[in-house]
Nucleic acid binder design. Sequence first.
DNA 1: ACATGTGATGAACAAATTTTCAATGATATA
DNA 2: TATATCATTGAAAATTTGTTCATCACATGT
Lengths: 323, 323
Amino acid sequence: MAQAREAETDLAVRAAWLSYVGGYTQEQIAQRLGVSRVKVHRLSALAQDLGFVKVSIEHELASTVALENRLIELYGLTSCILVPTMDDAVNGQTGTLAALGAAGARFLSRYLDREPATTIGIGWGKTLSSIAHCLLRRPRPNNRFVSVLGSLTRHAAANPYDVIHQLTHKTGAEGFIMPVPFIADAVSDRTLLMGQKSVRKIVALAKQADLYMLGIGSCGPEASAFESGQVTRSELETLRAAGAIGDLLGRFFDQSGKVVGCEFNQRVLGLEPEALRGRQVTAIAGGRGKRAAIEGALKMGVITTLISDEATAEALIEPREGP
Amino acid sequence: MAQAREAETDLAVRAAWLSYVGGYTQEQIAQRLGVSRVKVHRLSALAQDLGFVKVSIEHELASTVALENRLIELYGLTSCILVPTMDDAVNGQTGTLAALGAAGARFLSRYLDREPATTIGIGWGKTLSSIAHCLLRRPRPNNRFVSVLGSLTRHAAANPYDVIHQLTHKTGAEGFIMPVPFIADAVSDRTLLMGQKSVRKIVALAKQADLYMLGIGSCGPEASAFESGQVTRSELETLRAAGAIGDLLGRFFDQSGKVVGCEFNQRVLGLEPEALRGRQVTAIAGGRGKRAAIEGALKMGVITTLISDEATAEALIEPREGP
DNA sequence: ACATGTGATGAACAAATTTTCAATGATATA
DNA sequence: TATATCATTGAAAATTTGTTCATCACATGT
């Protein structure tokens, strides 16, 4: 009965048209088509399955949202925000960095609006700094910002102290920094420093933050951990030799998102990524050089929200390898 | 705050994408976007209002359904079925007629399937005959077909008796014909004939039919009422002079769907169109020459379902005049 | 300073939808 | 022919969506 099947398809198209284009209810359609309401539902579903129903969103954002969604599903995120990739060919990612900062600041702002009495754990890096810079001045006296990493660095440009300082300055929130360097000279030194009561207090506070905002560091020669002098050239080379392609919270991990077992990682002061698992963790990072690092970080499974740029996101969903 | 408005639009696009393309529930979208569920609903509605959401049905039937819907809304029908217009340039509407017959037969079949114990009032004409011809043989012993018009005509080709006969033959249903001519020689004759007990019984039965299936006659020289000899040339000319452009149940009406006050109409035997108002009335008619007649008939407001062809339907929704 | 209007918001309610489930009927196979 | 299997069906339940309404914040005019 090929005719019956065809008639079914025709009915499906009718039902789908009346439902999606005509805007009638399934009840009305059922009456008009002389079938049961449930059947109308099945017919529209059929029309969809057969690919007759085309829905599209006519807006430049549509592709962005689609991309965000791909990443969300691919890495089990709860949300993802992508900003347009700025064309800053020559000097790194100035434009994109600013866009990421703005997006991060908007994200943080919205969060603070909704959750007026929470503690936010803050990481490290140029991107975080950009966020602090972009944040609008608004009184948030009941929030607290706490550093999740050692704060004392040689250069002030993008150090945690500065980020926390700007955030508290702009919001009137309380700020807590971790009064130790980013990296200890020896593993034993780290143990000693982390054992200090003042540090333990901050760590305890940081561990129970309601939201974390972190950057993701890359592992190439342009890595800001290296550029800022936190990591020496030889350390970086050792890390890369061990398979490291990026860092989260100062811990370097490999392609698969596993923290590499190297000594360097044991000298870093601050929360470990694992301490954040299952919590609300927003990572902000973008730019061509960060692709591999971001991929690894996402594979760790700790990050729940990613803020990045479109070009990097495109690269992330393509299953090819690259620096 | 132009930025806020823009952000609202962006949110709307996101919500719409996630809802229509992503297939997420408003609740999920609300969580992801950090807004209330109701707001998600409002945002998708906004995106629609702004015209960002495009839904289309990719199927040749889509345009047909759209056209059907136009007619339904334009004339307050409960349903409308359009068949492809056949390209039968030379000899009238053979192809289209067959298509109408098939569509009408399908319609009738479906009705009989759903309502196995009902009475169907049957009209007159080549189109009705085509329907009877197309109907598949299926036992429907509990239905009844009753003629709504005088049945005895000079030529048998498309007369009610033949239609009823074919229908009862194919379905095993009971058939009732109205044992009088289509038209009386004088108004007084009509009164006499309609007063006959046997006629009154059929009329009473016809009046309480659950569904009527009627043709619509045109008023040109190709009108089958004229061709078949039911109406003489001079009668036709008188009718046209009175503004008639078509007939329903043998009553000729003008452009606006008003039955013309002419004597001819008072000699016709059978149900009057007004007796059908508010009931389920299916009219089947198509072809270029029928456009004006169909338009007038629809304007009468008695017809609830129209079965026609696409080209005629196109012409019907265009507000121009023609033969 | 105080009404008064306007627009946004979310809780509560109403409507529509999707899913589930048991019954039915058709079709194939022994 | 009897029986197993599978697809269809509509009623009812569960979920999702859409609407209404009271409230609130803010602006504008008195």
